[in-house]
Nucleic acid binder design. Sequence first.
DNA 1: CAGTATTCCTATTTAGTTGGTAGGAAGAGT
DNA 2: ACTCTTCCTACCAACTAAATAGGAATACTG
Lengths: 147, 147
Amino acid sequence: MYISARADYALRAMLAVADTGSTDAGGGSGSGELVKAASLADSQAIPLSFLQGILLDLRRAGLLHSHRGTEGGYALTRAPAEISVGDVLRAVGGALTSVRGMPADRTGYHGVATGLRDVWLAVDGAIALVVDRTTLADLLADRAPAP
Amino acid sequence: MYISARADYALRAMLAVADTGSTDAGGGSGSGELVKAASLADSQAIPLSFLQGILLDLRRAGLLHSHRGTEGGYALTRAPAEISVGDVLRAVGGALTSVRGMPADRTGYHGVATGLRDVWLAVDGAIALVVDRTTLADLLADRAPAP
DNA sequence: CAGTATTCCTATTTAGTTGGTAGGAAGAGT
DNA sequence: ACTCTTCCTACCAACTAAATAGGAATACTG
């Protein structure tokens, strides 16, 4: 499995939103749950303009709610316990496992290689089992997924 | 998980070697177990000169034995039941799961993202469980890995 | 109603990887 | 010698990822 910088940043940003959304640690006026992109970029050392594109993906995937203007920012649409790592990965990266750029279930093998398709499907299922069972709340509470 | 063309070709080539090594279906003189690179490239539709580099990796990893000259070719160093899919993947691609190019166990997270490392390690373990338990013999006999 | 802060969106640049090719040099048989 | 095949190196083209820049749209403030 390859975790791109985009996916890595997305997860870290979601964790930071979840964290500052529950514990009121803002340095500004402390008005509510909205976290600014600049604040996220700073706390997790992510290039701001790159992060903005990622936040856009997360919003389009329905994981974030955004608000413009002076007191704008981002917030989770669901509770941290209701958002899994897999949700975030799929929002920014498409399929979990791909073979030469194509999703695992669209591979076509011939001859002796026919069985390979089932291997990739099994791998995809195994990955999904881990990332779909781990939520943002688990990560914030330091509950590691079962090995 | 991302399966590169290199990894895909490597597995198909290994399966083809395993197949023609056991069932004597060669069209030439039928002298023995050695399979030529050109024959592999033809049977699985792989560019020959690209395949040669892959076969070299597989040989250096100790999975293939090669012989030069007129009656040269490639053969497995172990029985198909003793070679796993994971062996082949690691021979050509390095680590199974990588985060931004680095192996999963060399990641460093700070603050709220600390728990991410354990997720990647769990994913790596889940993938390894599938690919290390599936052998070339399983694939040739159409025995799919457990879902 | 200006003014400002902020999200939002697109286009561009830059660097690295991947897929694939070419051309020999070295070894093995006839 | 001659032929066949593996071996090895260097190279090119296309693509993707990562990051940057610059502007529209939107919402609050005075």
